[in-house]
Write a protein that binds this DNA or RNA. Structure first.
Lengths: 191, 191
DNA sequence: ATGATTTTGTGACATAAATCAAATGGCCAA
DNA sequence: TTGGCCATTTGATTTATGTCACAAAATCAT
């Protein structure tokens, strides 16, 4: 069980193939920090350009944006998932606010420190691009499983594919994520 | 105006920043070919794993998949756009068929030949990852501009952002792309 | 614990968009 | 050019889901 910064970074990097060598890890480490933040803390704020991405070690987060004054949730994340704004990574303001749903432990990645390393170390470049590539496949899936599908189909798909969402996220948030009203979600659950 | 393979490859690579050096282009060139295919030709087939990606030099293409026996169009592409299957790139079968909407001129990229080059040449790696990164931003935009929006909002957004789609793609295809019925699209157009 | 605030559920009703049906228009091949 | 096949439009009807209103339940702060 990881107990300090170096160990946790290690445990995370272990998941990546091909594994990062010592050289890459030495370069990355000064740009990675362990953080603890309480529920409701905002990691990324809408319309701002943050220089950080995060790994959720323990806890949960949501991403949402405002549309006609109401919050629309775009995703939820849990243990071992990267959270951050792809638009921030591309030097654009984030459209979304990323907020913690639970008291959480995180690794913060200093993107401005890491980007230059991508030119000198191909493993780091592959590592970042693998994270983006996986996110891209996730977005394709999300479009595929929501486009032209009924409220019930989207609900049952989410229940099948990410059951933990229903255990840790308020239904109000899940409703807008599914693109339906709270009332409709309530009725779908009632069967 | 590019007239042969090398020239067209060049014209395409010119668009990328930072520009590829001669070394990178020499490595890539044997993996790139100029092709001509007629309307209705299928570049990528659903449920198969193709080893090629394409740049549309001249012409148009669509990507679609079958859902309950009907074709759902997931995107349209025109001049100077890359077309291919991200799932194929990740060694997964494509969910979609990519079909030409017009007689077209293309550059084909041999992905199996190019992938090994990414390890030895960081410019090639950056080039591929830039294409994927831009696609990822496009997917985020598409989700953002369709989620929880009415048929009329999605229609007017497409009309504003990609007016050429309405000039070169049959309305039947556009309807499923927008996630609405042909009849509804017709009524929206009638204002 | 206790009340207050927030979240979830239920009912009645409104509406956007789908479906079904059929007419019109456009385009391609012989 | 002509017929035939799609693509598009228009109309009538149905349906899924949203909206509004309020009740019940759960959660939170004091």
């Amino acid at each position: 069980m990881p107990v300090d910064s170096a160990d946790m970074v290690d445990a995370f990097f272990e998941r990546y193939r091909p594994k990062l060598t010592e050289t890459a890890i030495v370069l990355l480490t000064p740009n990675v920090k362990v953080l603890h933040h309480p529920k409701k803390h905002e990691l990324i704020k809408a319309n701002q350009t943050s220089g950080y991405a995060y790994l959720l070690v323990k806890g949960a987060a949501r991403s949402y944006y405002l549309h006609n004054g109401t919050e629309i949730n775009s995703w939820f994340a849990f243990e071992n998932e990267m959270v951050g704004s792809l638009r921030n990574y591309n030097n654009l303001p984030s459209r979304e606010t990323i907020e913690l749903l639970e008291d959480s432990t995180l690794l913060s990645f200093n993107v401005n420190g890491i980007k230059p390393l991508m030119a000198e170390n191909i493993e780091i470049s592959n590592f970042i691009n693998q994270v983006i590539g996986e996110y891209c496949l996730y977005l394709e899936d999300k479009l595929y499983y929501t486009h032209l599908r009924s409220a019930r189909e989207r609900y049952t798909a989410l229940l099948a594919q990410e059951p933990n969402v229903f255990k840790r996220v308020p239904l109000t948030y899940i409703a807008s994520f599914l693109g339906i009203s709270r009332e409709t979600l309530s009725r779908l659950r009632a069967k």
